[in-house]
Write a protein that binds this DNA or RNA. Structure first.
Lengths: 397, 397
DNA sequence: ACAACTTCATTCGATTCCGAAGAAAGTCCA
DNA sequence: TGGACTTTCTTCGGAATCGAATGAAGTTGT
């Protein structure tokens, strides 16, 4: 399961537009896809006959004949998903309608190397698949979000800082072999962006989704699609030098990077330096919620630093929305500081209609995005239509 | 002539690939376009029959049958082009093969307002059109690059700083009325990007083209197409706050913007402050070439400031190339400083294969890009094929 | 209540595009 | 020198898509 390109207007695309609420009728699909009405009608008919779509009554008139409403006929098809953090892992199943089932998070130390991680993922996902199948659901694939640089085409991890042993590890194929299912692997910020775009902002075409957690990353949607750049490393904002008195050394070899002052890891370290016990982003959030002044100050300053970098990005890229995800986006002061910085520093034209918000799906956004990407890739790879009651697609060799 | 979208594989697209050397045979076109060989053959045949393309012998074998080489049959079709600067104007004609004719530059003060500019453009372009027609060429349209924010769809200027009277001026339609020709209007950095992409780097898909002249702007090519962003203001890098002791006020209302320290206007002002006569970017270039130490220092510092901003852009956007155009790109110290800053501050993955170069077309790049855009738009608007000896397309109402 | 208009959806020929097959021309290697 | 393989390009059915015509169902205004 490579990161398959999906042509606009494919059956999978139609299904997606209906699933996320962008289109509720054939006429909506025509407007959304820009295809001929006859083509859309034919495609919808295929999907209805395949049991993936169903008609459900009529909608409100807009001055003419009432539309026949469409909705996804959830044939109990799911993808498994795992959202990996450097110190935790979240797993769950994601359905065609976009909902998540059986979501669970637990602590896991990814820095211990790929071996234990592969074992852990195999174990958890196998159990999850069994539970899903026992519930009568068909598992079509697996999506993984990894907190570091990923070669999505090759399905490998690339030189993650502070994670020895992972360089060039072929996580996708190793996991696919073990599970007997096609696996999709991508960067955590990218799957977060996919999830937020699909679930909360499907109509927007240019989107920057920041993941502010233990590290800082961002995923970019351009023209309605995930943007990877020339070498697949687009979206990096964490290794930008920021105005700061403390020019701390960064894992990338430079000094004064955003990551060294505004990441969850940096904030926790600064708190410990002030004698306050803080280890994880959860600890930081708790401190902020309890009104710990040092924590709040640090989080607010982190928001300002992130905002200063995003200001450059917003002026250059001119997106319709900046979405803040990751654990730290749960802290209101951070979101407020980013907003303030963007409105202060960006051109009025760039912020006039700019949406700046925390991730709508909260902690599940990355997981849902990974599952969604896997579902979409499996639809693209196995042909547009799985037979209504046909066999499972063959697992990837 | 709006900024028409051109679907890949259209006749105009084929013509373009042949014109800029990306494809020299039908087989090349198949590889480049990703279309079926039969489709390409049919399209080429159309173009040959319409007299826009011709076969010219055979090329070298690559281990099989020799390709039949194609080239643009220059039917003497041109677009007029004008590249406007705040204090000069450059006009010329651009042919299908990409070459420029009758290029001429002269001083003109754009800040005097739209009225005089409209008169000047009408006069110069009318004379140019007459000369081109007298030479037996057909004029298909006009392309204009304007040094400020442009609403390309609406053909209007938007709130340019330091150019009173231009806000919302409908330059495109006013000029089209006067000339009786379709006019395309876009930002100067955008047409520069189009020109450099087409003429020098047609194979690259993600490109940032900086225009460093009296002001600073950039044009972005993403996915092989001009990227405008949500509100059409993408590519702005001049209103980013930079590390600087002098936090000078900027026309945008903020302080410490890149433009206030690194633009040609800022450098000239700084030189004057040191008692050195310098008014235009030409003066600056001359001083640098003569080894004036203050000028060289200022230009090098400007390069570092621009490079610091571009480092953020390169990490985020991950382009294949950063091209430096505009008058100041003629100063080697500036180019060198940008290179140094990018290699120092960007992630290795982002700079490993990054091309950083001065604009290949030099001072003509923007003009050629504007003409090329106009040719392409006219091909898209008037249908794929102008009749071989048919009538002129009707001018825009 | 009835005509005029709008929106939604399908049917059906025409067109475009693709993909397989094959023809034309050349290279490579035994 | 003579097959085996490559590359280039065309021919030709078949599939996908479009667009115009049509029908179906509702709203609005007089």
């Amino acid at each position: 399961m490579t990161a398959a390109e999906e042509q606009p207007g494919s059956a999978a695309h139609v299904l997606e537009l209906v699933a996320n609420g962008s289109a509720a009728s054939r006429a909506d699909l025509v407007r959304e896809l820009g295809l001929a009405a006859s083509t859309v009608s034919a495609r919808v008919q295929e999907l209805v006959e395949a049991g993936l779509l169903s008609e459900s009554g009529e909608g409100a008139s807009r001055g003419g004949r009432r539309p026949r409403l469409l909705r996804v006929a959830d044939r109990q098809t799911v993808a498994l998903a795992a959202d990996l953090g450097s110190h935790h892992v979240r797993t769950g199943a994601v359905g065609l309608t976009g909902g998540g089932f059986d979501i669970d998070e637990s602590a896991f130390d990814l820095t211990a190397g790929p071996g234990p991680a592969l074992d852990m993922l195999t174990e958890r996902l196998t159990a999850l698949a069994e539970r899903q199948r026992a519930a009568g659901r068909t598992v079509r694939g697996v999506g993984i979000g990894f907190p570091g640089p990923v070669d999505a085409d090759g399905g490998r991890i690339i030189a993650p800082s502070r994670m020895p042993g992972w360089h060039l590890f072929a996580l996708r194929d190793r996991l696919a072999d073990r599970l007997g299912l096609p696996v999709l692997l991508d960067n955590d910020a990218n799957v977060l962006a996919l999830g937020e775009h699909r679930a909360a902002h499907p109509a927007l075409r240019h989107l920057v989704v920041v993941k502010a957690g233990r590290g800082i990353g961002s995923g970019v949607i351009s023209g309605g699609r995930l943007y990877r750049g020339a070498r697949g490393s687009a979206g990096d904002i964490s290794h930008v030098r920021v105005d700061s008195t403390a020019e701390l050394p960064c894992s990338c070899g430079n000094i004064g990077c955003l990551e060294t002052v505004a990441s969850g890891a940096a904030i926790a370290a600064a708190l410990r330096g002030q004698g306050i016990a803080a280890d994880s982003t959860t600890d930081i959030l708790r401190l902020v919620e309890n009104g710990e002044p040092h924590a709040t100050t640090l989080v607010r300053q982190a928001g300002r630093d992130i905002g200063a970098v995003l200001a450059v990005v917003v002026n250059f890229f001119n997106p319709e929305a900046v979405i803040l995800g990751g654990a730290l986006s749960g802290a209101e002061p951070l979101v407020a500081a980013v907003r303030g910085m963007l409105y202060e520093r960006c051109l009025p034209m760039a912020t006039r209609d700019l949406v700046i918000d925390a991730a709508a799906c909260g902690p599940d956004a990355g997981l849902l995005g990974a599952g969604h990407a896997a579902l979409r890739a499996s639809a693209a790879a196995d042909g547009p239509l799985p037979a209504a009651d046909g066999p499972l697609p063959a697992p990837r060799a």
